[in-house]
Nucleic acid binder design. Structure first.
Lengths: 204, 204
DNA sequence: GTCTATAAAAGGATAGAC
DNA sequence: GTCTATCCTTTTATAGAC
């Protein structure tokens, strides 16, 4: 099943790391070649140009969101609301082990690329969508604990909103406290929704 | 009072626009020279290098936050909580008139620059801090309408969190709805806090 | 599919006259 | 303080042998 990675895969993997670490524009082809110990001929054999490599990277993030992000985060957690906060805790862990340098690579690219070509923008959006869809599925699983008026898609988007905004501040201040306080506010938000739902249940 | 702008000021102004429009890395010195109709000698006479120009831009944002952002946004609004949402509405307006392209220039730079030199990072943080301080002042003015347990600095940070996260998604999807729904969730959050505060007042 | 060599352009920055 | 001309490096990408 697990055969040795192709040169193409090694290049994509190195590009993922470098784009996350330095940004797309600040990563040169030479950086990628040096990290993978390949020559430009190999890279341009696999990809027409740098932007196509970006597309491959964004596609890898999108298809990897389950096995690389969600499944590890949800290992032992089964409660759907807690799974949402376990996902957020995974981002906290990445910030923590990187000295508040590594946040959300998709968010960084989304704000770095100001006028991305349509295919790039679509893949950025597809990544966000896959993320919020996973959150929304958990919200749906906890439907009875939320007010009937709750807009689940909007609430799932809001979780992403808070994660990205918290990551941005934690990175800027190099202080995990900014992320933690954002998540704490989100906890309060969910607690308020749960209280509303209980009140509704009592009146039914 | 208002004398003709110096060449230095015209360069800073052009750089503000271009950094917001294309990003720092994607803006070349030649771009700035062409927009200001100046020559490289003038730019390098005013600034040692490109990064120093970035510092001047970030400083201009910081000192301009009152007259350029807060005061216009707060023109007719006096209620402190509504002033917070008027500020958010100002960002909505900028997104709307730019086809969801122009969001928060500070946030974009904060995520574009992955390892900014300390002075750059400090100015990014100072911009965030000035913004949240203005929000926090409004929260303090509405102190009696918020629960005694409310953490005003954390709540002010949360407003920034939601704004930045909402801008990111609106820009990525090129859809203002993502921003609007984030703000609507924040409205609910404030409504919940107000309800808590009223309950407290009744029990006192 | 991978190698070396190199083209072709763009980038930041400098020199020195005026 | 502004002008022109230019240096030097980096960058993306290509050519063609193996």
């Amino acid at each position: 099943m697990s055969t040795r990675p192709t040169t193409r895969d090694r290049i994509v993997h190195a590009a993922m790391e470098l784009f996350a670490d330095k940004g797309y524009g600040a990563t040169s082809i030479a950086d990628i070649l040096s990290r993978t110990q390949t020559n430009s001929g190999s890279l341009y054999h696999a990809f027409p140009g740098k932007q196509d490599l970006l597309l491959a990277v964004l596609d890898a993030y999108r298809t990897g969101i389950g096995p690389m992000l969600l499944e590890p985060a949800w290992g032992v957690v089964t409660d759907p609301i807690e799974r949402i906060f376990a996902l957020l805790a995974a981002y906290r862990g990445m910030l923590a082990t990187s000295d508040c340098t590594y946040g959300c690579p998709i968010g960084s690219l989304a704000l770095e690329l100001h006028e991305p070509d349509p295919p790039v923008r679509e893949l950025l959006a597809a990544n966000f969508q896959a993320w919020t869809a996973a959150v929304e599925a958990n919200l749906a699983a906890a439907r009875e604990r939320l007010p009937v008026s709750a807009d689940l898609p909007a609430l799932a988007e809001f979780v992403l909103t808070v994660m990205e905004g918290g990551v941005m501040q934690a990175r800027t201040y190099r202080d995990l406290g900014y992320f933690d306080r954002a998540i704490a506010q989100l906890r309060h938000h969910f607690a308020g929704l749960a209280a509303l739902a209980e009140k509704e249940a009592a009146c039914a």
